[in-house]
Write a protein that binds this DNA or RNA. Structure first.
Lengths: 201, 201
DNA sequence: TACGGCATCTTGCCAATGTCAAGATTCGGC
DNA sequence: GCCGAATCTTGACATTGGCAAGATGCCGTA
Protein backbone atom coordinates (compact mmCIF):
# COMPACT_ATOMS: atom_id res chain seq x y z
CA UNK A 1 0.00 0.00 0.00
CA UNK A 2 1.18 3.54 -0.64
CA UNK A 3 2.35 4.74 2.73
CA UNK A 4 2.21 8.55 2.91
CA UNK A 5 5.56 9.88 3.99
CA UNK A 6 4.13 12.54 6.21
CA UNK A 7 3.13 9.70 8.42
CA UNK A 8 -0.41 10.77 9.11
CA UNK A 9 -3.42 9.78 7.14
CA UNK A 10 -3.83 6.11 6.26
CA UNK A 11 -1.21 3.54 7.04
CA UNK A 12 -1.16 0.06 8.40
CA UNK A 13 1.24 0.89 11.19
CA UNK A 14 -0.10 3.86 13.04
CA UNK A 15 3.13 4.90 14.68
CA UNK A 16 1.92 5.64 18.18
CA UNK A 17 -1.48 4.04 18.32
CA UNK A 18 -1.22 3.20 21.99
CA UNK A 19 -0.93 6.83 23.02
CA UNK A 20 -3.58 7.85 20.50
CA UNK A 21 -6.01 5.31 21.92
CA UNK A 22 -5.43 6.57 25.45
CA UNK A 23 -6.04 10.13 24.28
CA UNK A 24 -9.25 9.25 22.49
CA UNK A 25 -10.36 7.21 25.47
CA UNK A 26 -9.81 10.13 27.82
CA UNK A 27 -11.73 12.44 25.51
CA UNK A 28 -14.63 10.05 25.13
CA UNK A 29 -14.82 9.33 28.85
CA UNK A 30 -14.81 12.98 29.80
CA UNK A 31 -17.74 13.45 27.42
CA UNK A 32 -19.92 10.49 28.32
CA UNK A 33 -18.46 8.80 31.38
CA UNK A 34 -16.66 5.48 31.58
CA UNK A 35 -19.79 3.40 31.47
CA UNK A 36 -20.90 4.55 28.05
CA UNK A 37 -17.51 4.36 26.34
CA UNK A 38 -16.77 1.21 24.36
CA UNK A 39 -13.54 -0.10 22.99
CA UNK A 40 -15.11 -0.05 19.56
CA UNK A 41 -15.98 3.62 19.78
CA UNK A 42 -12.43 4.43 20.81
CA UNK A 43 -11.21 2.42 17.84
CA UNK A 44 -13.61 4.30 15.59
CA UNK A 45 -12.34 7.66 16.85
CA UNK A 46 -8.78 6.56 16.20
CA UNK A 47 -9.72 5.30 12.74
CA UNK A 48 -8.55 1.73 13.34
CA UNK A 49 -10.25 -1.63 13.40
CA UNK A 50 -12.37 -2.69 16.33
CA UNK A 51 -9.80 -5.18 17.59
CA UNK A 52 -6.80 -2.86 17.58
CA UNK A 53 -7.33 -1.64 21.16
CA UNK A 54 -7.53 -5.19 22.44
CA UNK A 55 -4.17 -5.96 20.88
CA UNK A 56 -2.51 -3.07 22.73
CA UNK A 57 -4.21 -3.39 26.09
CA UNK A 58 -5.46 -6.95 26.20
CA UNK A 59 -8.90 -5.97 27.33
CA UNK A 60 -11.11 -3.05 28.23
CA UNK A 61 -9.92 -3.37 31.82
CA UNK A 62 -6.39 -3.21 30.50
CA UNK A 63 -7.00 0.06 28.72
CA UNK A 64 -8.63 1.63 31.75
CA UNK A 65 -5.78 0.35 33.90
CA UNK A 66 -3.26 2.01 31.60
CA UNK A 67 -5.30 5.20 31.71
CA UNK A 68 -5.31 5.12 35.49
CA UNK A 69 -1.56 4.58 35.62
CA UNK A 70 -1.06 7.49 33.24
CA UNK A 71 -3.24 9.58 35.53
CA UNK A 72 -1.29 8.71 38.67
CA UNK A 73 1.96 9.61 36.94
CA UNK A 74 0.55 12.93 35.74
CA UNK A 75 -0.71 13.64 39.26
CA UNK A 76 2.65 12.78 40.74
CA UNK A 77 4.38 15.09 38.28
CA UNK A 78 1.99 17.89 39.10
CA UNK A 79 2.38 17.49 42.84
CA UNK A 80 6.13 17.35 42.42
CA UNK A 81 6.20 20.62 40.49
CA UNK A 82 3.74 22.28 42.84
CA UNK A 83 5.88 21.33 45.80
CA UNK A 84 8.90 22.88 44.14
CA UNK A 85 7.12 26.10 43.34
CA UNK A 86 5.35 26.76 46.60
CA UNK A 87 5.35 25.60 50.16
CA UNK A 88 1.85 26.94 50.68
CA UNK A 89 -0.35 24.10 51.75
CA UNK A 90 -3.47 25.70 50.33
CA UNK A 91 -1.93 26.11 46.90
CA UNK A 92 -0.85 22.47 46.86
CA UNK A 93 -4.47 21.57 47.51
CA UNK A 94 -5.63 23.88 44.75
CA UNK A 95 -3.17 22.17 42.43
CA UNK A 96 -4.70 18.81 43.30
CA UNK A 97 -8.16 20.12 42.50
CA UNK A 98 -6.93 21.65 39.26
CA UNK A 99 -5.54 18.30 38.20
CA UNK A 100 -8.86 16.60 38.82
CA UNK A 101 -10.83 19.23 36.91
CA UNK A 102 -8.44 19.32 33.97
CA UNK A 103 -8.17 15.52 33.71
CA UNK A 104 -11.70 14.40 34.58
CA UNK A 105 -11.48 11.14 32.66
CA UNK A 106 -8.25 10.07 34.34
CA UNK A 107 -9.55 11.15 37.72
CA UNK A 108 -12.75 9.20 37.18
CA UNK A 109 -10.86 6.03 36.36
CA UNK A 110 -8.06 6.37 38.90
CA UNK A 111 -10.19 5.87 41.96
CA UNK A 112 -12.43 3.03 40.83
CA UNK A 113 -10.46 -0.13 41.53
CA UNK A 114 -13.25 -2.24 40.08
CA UNK A 115 -12.25 -0.90 36.67
CA UNK A 116 -8.62 -2.00 37.03
CA UNK A 117 -6.79 -5.27 36.82
CA UNK A 118 -5.35 -4.89 40.27
CA UNK A 119 -2.17 -6.87 39.74
CA UNK A 120 -0.84 -4.61 37.00
CA UNK A 121 2.71 -3.65 38.00
CA UNK A 122 2.70 -0.36 36.08
CA UNK A 123 -0.42 0.78 37.90
CA UNK A 124 0.96 -0.32 41.24
CA UNK A 125 4.15 1.63 40.67
CA UNK A 126 2.33 4.76 39.55
CA UNK A 127 0.01 4.59 42.55
CA UNK A 128 2.89 4.22 44.94
CA UNK A 129 4.79 7.13 43.40
CA UNK A 130 1.77 9.41 43.66
CA UNK A 131 1.02 8.19 47.16
CA UNK A 132 4.49 8.98 48.43
CA UNK A 133 4.31 12.49 47.03
CA UNK A 134 0.86 13.01 48.50
CA UNK A 135 1.93 11.90 51.94
CA UNK A 136 5.49 13.08 51.94
CA UNK A 137 4.90 16.65 50.93
CA UNK A 138 1.90 18.10 52.69
CA UNK A 139 1.91 17.73 56.42
CA UNK A 140 0.43 20.00 58.96
CA UNK A 141 2.74 20.15 61.95
CA UNK A 142 1.17 20.41 65.32
CA UNK A 143 -1.04 17.36 65.03
CA UNK A 144 -0.46 13.76 64.15
CA UNK A 145 0.94 14.32 60.72
CA UNK A 146 -0.47 11.06 59.43
CA UNK A 147 -4.04 11.95 60.32
CA UNK A 148 -3.61 15.53 59.19
CA UNK A 149 -2.27 14.34 55.87
CA UNK A 150 -5.22 12.04 55.42
CA UNK A 151 -7.59 14.83 56.34
CA UNK A 152 -5.95 17.22 53.90
CA UNK A 153 -6.03 14.73 51.07
CA UNK A 154 -9.63 13.86 51.92
CA UNK A 155 -10.62 17.51 51.81
CA UNK A 156 -9.26 18.29 48.38
CA UNK A 157 -10.19 14.90 46.97
CA UNK A 158 -13.72 15.25 48.25
CA UNK A 159 -14.05 18.74 46.87
CA UNK A 160 -12.89 17.62 43.46
CA UNK A 161 -15.20 14.62 43.48
CA UNK A 162 -18.21 16.63 44.57
CA UNK A 163 -17.50 19.30 41.99
CA UNK A 164 -17.18 16.78 39.20
CA UNK A 165 -20.38 15.13 40.42
CA UNK A 166 -22.21 18.43 40.10
CA UNK A 167 -23.12 17.96 43.74
CA UNK A 168 -22.04 21.33 45.05
CA UNK A 169 -24.69 24.05 45.25
CA UNK A 170 -24.56 26.37 42.29
CA UNK A 171 -22.83 29.68 42.77
CA UNK A 172 -22.59 31.77 39.64
CA UNK A 173 -19.43 33.36 38.44
CA UNK A 174 -17.19 31.69 40.99
CA UNK A 175 -14.58 29.52 39.31
CA UNK A 176 -13.89 26.17 40.96
CA UNK A 177 -10.32 26.99 41.93
CA UNK A 178 -11.47 29.97 43.92
CA UNK A 179 -14.18 27.96 45.66
CA UNK A 180 -11.63 25.28 46.43
CA UNK A 181 -9.31 27.93 47.86
CA UNK A 182 -12.12 29.26 50.00
CA UNK A 183 -12.98 25.80 51.26
CA UNK A 184 -9.36 25.05 52.09
CA UNK A 185 -9.08 28.37 53.89
CA UNK A 186 -12.15 27.49 55.89
CA UNK A 187 -10.24 24.34 56.76
CA UNK A 188 -7.18 26.28 57.86
CA UNK A 189 -8.88 29.20 59.58
CA UNK A 190 -8.49 29.11 63.30
CA UNK A 191 -5.26 27.19 63.17
CA UNK A 192 -2.09 28.60 64.57
CA UNK A 193 -0.36 30.67 61.92
CA UNK A 194 2.88 28.75 61.83
CA UNK A 195 1.33 25.51 60.75
CA UNK A 196 -0.03 26.67 57.45
CA UNK A 197 2.96 25.81 55.33
CA UNK A 198 4.13 22.41 54.27
CA UNK A 199 7.39 21.21 55.71
CA UNK A 200 10.33 22.02 53.48
CA UNK A 201 12.79 19.34 52.63
CA UNK B 1 -50.26 -21.93 38.26
CA UNK B 2 -50.32 -22.95 41.91
CA UNK B 3 -49.45 -19.82 43.80
CA UNK B 4 -47.90 -20.71 47.16
CA UNK B 5 -49.70 -18.88 49.93
CA UNK B 6 -46.54 -18.02 51.77
CA UNK B 7 -45.90 -15.67 48.90
CA UNK B 8 -42.31 -16.62 48.25
CA UNK B 9 -41.13 -19.22 45.83
CA UNK B 10 -42.56 -19.21 42.31
CA UNK B 11 -45.34 -16.92 41.21
CA UNK B 12 -46.07 -14.80 38.22
CA UNK B 13 -46.56 -11.66 40.23
CA UNK B 14 -43.62 -11.29 42.51
CA UNK B 15 -45.26 -8.94 44.95
CA UNK B 16 -42.50 -6.42 45.41
CA UNK B 17 -40.19 -7.08 42.53
CA UNK B 18 -39.12 -3.49 42.23
CA UNK B 19 -37.66 -3.41 45.70
CA UNK B 20 -36.17 -6.87 45.27
CA UNK B 21 -34.44 -5.81 42.07
CA UNK B 22 -32.96 -2.77 43.80
CA UNK B 23 -31.73 -4.98 46.65
CA UNK B 24 -30.13 -7.47 44.31
CA UNK B 25 -28.62 -4.65 42.28
CA UNK B 26 -27.06 -3.12 45.39
CA UNK B 27 -25.65 -6.48 46.43
CA UNK B 28 -24.22 -7.22 43.00
CA UNK B 29 -22.73 -3.75 42.63
CA UNK B 30 -21.06 -3.87 46.02
CA UNK B 31 -19.46 -7.15 44.96
CA UNK B 32 -18.29 -6.32 41.46
CA UNK B 33 -18.79 -2.61 40.85
CA UNK B 34 -21.36 -0.92 38.64
CA UNK B 35 -19.50 -1.57 35.43
CA UNK B 36 -19.65 -5.34 35.66
CA UNK B 37 -23.27 -5.64 36.76
CA UNK B 38 -25.82 -6.33 34.06
CA UNK B 39 -29.58 -6.07 34.11
CA UNK B 40 -29.75 -9.71 33.15
CA UNK B 41 -27.66 -10.81 36.10
CA UNK B 42 -29.88 -8.83 38.44
CA UNK B 43 -32.88 -10.52 36.87
CA UNK B 44 -31.20 -13.90 37.31
CA UNK B 45 -30.55 -13.18 40.99
CA UNK B 46 -34.17 -12.23 41.48
CA UNK B 47 -35.32 -15.32 39.61
CA UNK B 48 -37.27 -13.45 36.96
CA UNK B 49 -37.00 -13.10 33.22
CA UNK B 50 -34.32 -10.97 31.64
CA UNK B 51 -36.77 -8.25 30.61
CA UNK B 52 -38.46 -7.81 33.97
CA UNK B 53 -36.06 -5.09 35.20
CA UNK B 54 -36.60 -3.08 32.04
CA UNK B 55 -40.33 -3.09 32.65
CA UNK B 56 -39.92 -1.61 36.10
CA UNK B 57 -37.17 0.89 35.42
CA UNK B 58 -37.32 1.49 31.68
CA UNK B 59 -33.62 1.03 31.21
CA UNK B 60 -30.38 0.29 32.98
CA UNK B 61 -29.94 4.00 33.56
CA UNK B 62 -33.40 4.02 35.08
CA UNK B 63 -32.51 1.33 37.59
CA UNK B 64 -29.32 3.08 38.62
CA UNK B 65 -31.22 6.34 38.88
CA UNK B 66 -33.73 4.72 41.22
CA UNK B 67 -30.87 3.25 43.24
CA UNK B 68 -29.27 6.68 43.53
CA UNK B 69 -32.53 8.24 44.66
CA UNK B 70 -32.96 5.50 47.26
CA UNK B 71 -29.46 6.25 48.44
CA UNK B 72 -30.03 9.97 48.80
CA UNK B 73 -33.17 9.32 50.82
CA UNK B 74 -31.36 6.88 53.07
CA UNK B 75 -28.54 9.38 53.54
CA UNK B 76 -31.02 12.13 54.36
CA UNK B 77 -32.72 9.90 56.92
CA UNK B 78 -29.39 9.05 58.50
CA UNK B 79 -28.26 12.66 58.70
CA UNK B 80 -31.64 13.62 60.12
CA UNK B 81 -31.37 11.04 62.90
CA UNK B 82 -27.74 11.84 63.56
CA UNK B 83 -28.59 15.50 63.92
CA UNK B 84 -31.29 14.65 66.44
CA UNK B 85 -29.02 12.45 68.51
CA UNK B 86 -25.91 14.56 68.66
CA UNK B 87 -24.79 18.08 68.01
CA UNK B 88 -21.20 16.97 67.77
CA UNK B 89 -19.90 17.95 64.39
CA UNK B 90 -17.33 15.17 64.32
CA UNK B 91 -19.92 12.50 65.01
CA UNK B 92 -22.11 13.80 62.19
CA UNK B 93 -19.15 13.38 59.89
CA UNK B 94 -18.53 9.88 61.20
CA UNK B 95 -22.18 9.11 60.49
CA UNK B 96 -21.70 10.25 56.91
CA UNK B 97 -18.69 7.97 56.52
CA UNK B 98 -20.57 5.09 58.10
CA UNK B 99 -23.35 5.51 55.57
CA UNK B 100 -20.91 5.36 52.68
CA UNK B 101 -19.16 2.26 54.02
CA UNK B 102 -22.39 0.43 54.83
CA UNK B 103 -24.03 1.30 51.51
CA UNK B 104 -21.11 1.15 49.08
CA UNK B 105 -23.26 0.37 46.05
CA UNK B 106 -25.60 3.28 46.62
CA UNK B 107 -22.69 5.58 47.38
CA UNK B 108 -20.94 4.51 44.21
CA UNK B 109 -23.96 5.26 42.07
CA UNK B 110 -25.10 8.43 43.82
CA UNK B 111 -22.18 10.58 42.77
CA UNK B 112 -21.77 9.52 39.15
CA UNK B 113 -24.22 11.67 37.21
CA UNK B 114 -23.25 9.97 33.98
CA UNK B 115 -25.08 6.89 35.27
CA UNK B 116 -28.33 8.77 35.88
CA UNK B 117 -31.08 10.10 33.70
CA UNK B 118 -30.68 13.61 34.98
CA UNK B 119 -34.24 14.77 34.52
CA UNK B 120 -35.73 12.16 36.84
CA UNK B 121 -37.93 14.06 39.31
CA UNK B 122 -37.62 11.46 42.07
CA UNK B 123 -33.83 11.69 41.97
CA UNK B 124 -33.93 15.48 41.90
CA UNK B 125 -36.18 15.54 44.94
CA UNK B 126 -34.05 13.08 46.88
CA UNK B 127 -30.89 15.01 46.05
CA UNK B 128 -32.39 18.25 47.19
CA UNK B 129 -33.63 16.76 50.46
CA UNK B 130 -30.21 15.33 51.25
CA UNK B 131 -28.52 18.54 50.18
CA UNK B 132 -30.59 20.66 52.51
CA UNK B 133 -29.82 18.40 55.45
CA UNK B 134 -26.13 18.38 54.58
CA UNK B 135 -25.93 22.14 54.39
CA UNK B 136 -28.52 23.06 56.99
CA UNK B 137 -27.19 20.99 59.83
CA UNK B 138 -23.43 21.17 60.05
CA UNK B 139 -22.04 24.65 60.10
CA UNK B 140 -18.91 25.83 61.74
CA UNK B 141 -19.53 29.29 63.18
CA UNK B 142 -16.66 31.69 63.05
CA UNK B 143 -16.02 31.46 59.34
CA UNK B 144 -18.12 31.83 56.26
CA UNK B 145 -20.55 29.05 57.01
CA UNK B 146 -21.06 28.27 53.35
CA UNK B 147 -17.38 27.59 52.74
CA UNK B 148 -16.97 25.77 56.02
CA UNK B 149 -19.93 23.56 55.17
CA UNK B 150 -18.44 22.75 51.80
CA UNK B 151 -15.11 22.00 53.41
CA UNK B 152 -16.69 19.74 56.00
CA UNK B 153 -18.69 17.84 53.44
CA UNK B 154 -15.64 17.58 51.20
CA UNK B 155 -13.58 16.17 54.06
CA UNK B 156 -15.92 13.36 54.99
CA UNK B 157 -16.91 12.66 51.40
CA UNK B 158 -13.30 12.50 50.34
CA UNK B 159 -12.38 10.21 53.20
CA UNK B 160 -15.22 7.84 52.34
CA UNK B 161 -14.32 7.86 48.66
CA UNK B 162 -10.64 7.25 49.29
CA UNK B 163 -11.40 4.48 51.75
CA UNK B 164 -13.74 2.74 49.34
CA UNK B 165 -11.11 3.16 46.62
CA UNK B 166 -8.58 1.37 48.76
CA UNK B 167 -6.42 4.45 48.30
CA UNK B 168 -5.59 5.10 51.94
CA UNK B 169 -2.35 3.62 53.27
CA UNK B 170 -2.92 0.40 55.11
CA UNK B 171 -3.01 0.55 58.88
CA UNK B 172 -3.80 -2.71 60.54
CA UNK B 173 -6.41 -3.12 63.19
CA UNK B 174 -7.77 0.37 62.93
CA UNK B 175 -11.43 0.37 61.91
CA UNK B 176 -12.47 2.98 59.35
CA UNK B 177 -14.76 4.87 61.72
CA UNK B 178 -11.90 5.48 64.10
CA UNK B 179 -9.61 6.61 61.32
CA UNK B 180 -12.34 8.92 60.07
CA UNK B 181 -12.74 10.30 63.59
CA UNK B 182 -9.01 10.90 63.80
CA UNK B 183 -8.98 12.65 60.42
CA UNK B 184 -11.90 14.86 61.40
CA UNK B 185 -10.21 15.69 64.69
CA UNK B 186 -7.11 16.65 62.79
CA UNK B 187 -9.43 18.94 60.87
CA UNK B 188 -10.83 20.45 64.01
CA UNK B 189 -7.66 20.66 66.08
CA UNK B 190 -6.44 24.15 66.53
CA UNK B 191 -9.85 25.68 66.15
CA UNK B 192 -11.41 27.69 68.90
CA UNK B 193 -13.20 25.35 71.25
CA UNK B 194 -16.63 26.89 70.94
CA UNK B 195 -16.97 26.24 67.23
CA UNK B 196 -16.79 22.48 67.36
CA UNK B 197 -20.48 21.81 67.70
CA UNK B 198 -23.11 22.15 65.05
CA UNK B 199 -25.66 24.88 65.55
CA UNK B 200 -28.69 23.60 67.40
CA UNK B 201 -32.12 24.35 66.10
C1' DT C 1 19.98 -6.51 -1.42
C1' DA C 2 17.24 -10.49 0.06
C1' DC C 3 14.98 -12.75 3.61
C1' DG C 4 12.90 -14.34 7.72
C1' DG C 5 11.01 -13.35 12.24
C1' DC C 6 7.92 -10.50 14.60
C1' DA C 7 5.10 -6.76 16.08
C1' DT C 8 1.14 -4.41 14.33
C1' DC C 9 -3.33 -4.26 12.62
C1' DT C 10 -7.57 -6.45 10.19
C1' DT C 11 -11.28 -9.61 9.36
C1' DG C 12 -14.55 -12.86 10.87
C1' DC C 13 -16.77 -14.91 14.45
C1' DC C 14 -19.19 -16.00 19.08
C1' DA C 15 -21.54 -15.36 23.54
C1' DA C 16 -23.48 -11.83 26.33
C1' DT C 17 -25.91 -7.56 26.91
C1' DG C 18 -29.62 -3.66 26.56
C1' DT C 19 -33.74 -2.68 24.46
C1' DC C 20 -37.95 -3.27 22.04
C1' DA C 21 -42.40 -5.60 20.54
C1' DA C 22 -45.79 -8.98 21.24
C1' DG C 23 -47.85 -12.30 24.04
C1' DA C 24 -49.10 -14.71 28.51
C1' DT C 25 -50.68 -14.31 33.27
C1' DT C 26 -52.71 -12.23 37.14
C1' DC C 27 -54.77 -8.43 39.85
C1' DG C 28 -58.35 -5.00 40.92
C1' DG C 29 -62.50 -2.43 40.17
C1' DC C 30 -67.22 -2.41 38.63
C1' DG D 1 -68.22 -12.57 36.98
C1' DC D 2 -65.87 -9.91 33.79
C1' DC D 3 -62.93 -6.58 31.55
C1' DG D 4 -59.04 -3.38 31.53
C1' DA D 5 -54.60 -2.70 33.25
C1' DA D 6 -50.50 -3.97 35.46
C1' DT D 7 -47.03 -7.47 35.76
C1' DC D 8 -44.00 -10.60 33.77
C1' DT D 9 -42.32 -13.73 29.76
C1' DT D 10 -40.76 -14.91 25.24
C1' DG D 11 -38.46 -13.84 21.13
C1' DA D 12 -35.82 -10.96 18.37
C1' DC D 13 -32.14 -7.45 16.98
C1' DA D 14 -28.10 -4.34 17.09
C1' DT D 15 -24.02 -3.59 19.78
C1' DT D 16 -20.31 -4.96 22.58
C1' DG D 17 -15.90 -7.47 24.44
C1' DG D 18 -13.00 -11.09 23.36
C1' DC D 19 -10.78 -14.62 20.59
C1' DA D 20 -8.55 -16.87 16.45
C1' DA D 21 -6.64 -16.56 12.10
C1' DG D 22 -4.89 -13.94 8.55
C1' DA D 23 -2.84 -9.75 6.27
C1' DT D 24 0.63 -6.10 6.36
C1' DG D 25 4.73 -3.70 7.24
C1' DC D 26 9.12 -3.16 10.12
C1' DC D 27 13.78 -4.50 11.42
C1' DG D 28 17.87 -7.04 12.00
C1' DT D 29 20.95 -10.28 9.74
C1' DA D 30 23.54 -12.30 6.23
Amino acid sequence: MNAPLNGRTQQYHHGDLRRALLDHAAAAISESGVAKVSLREIARRAGVSHAAPTHHFGSREGLLTALAAQGFHALADLMHNAHEQTADFAEMGVAYVQFALSHPAHFEVMFQPHLHQGDDPALRAAQQRAGELLYGAPTLPGTGTRDAGIAAWSLVHGFATLWLSNALPAEQDTPPEQRARQAIRAFLDGRSEGSLAANDD
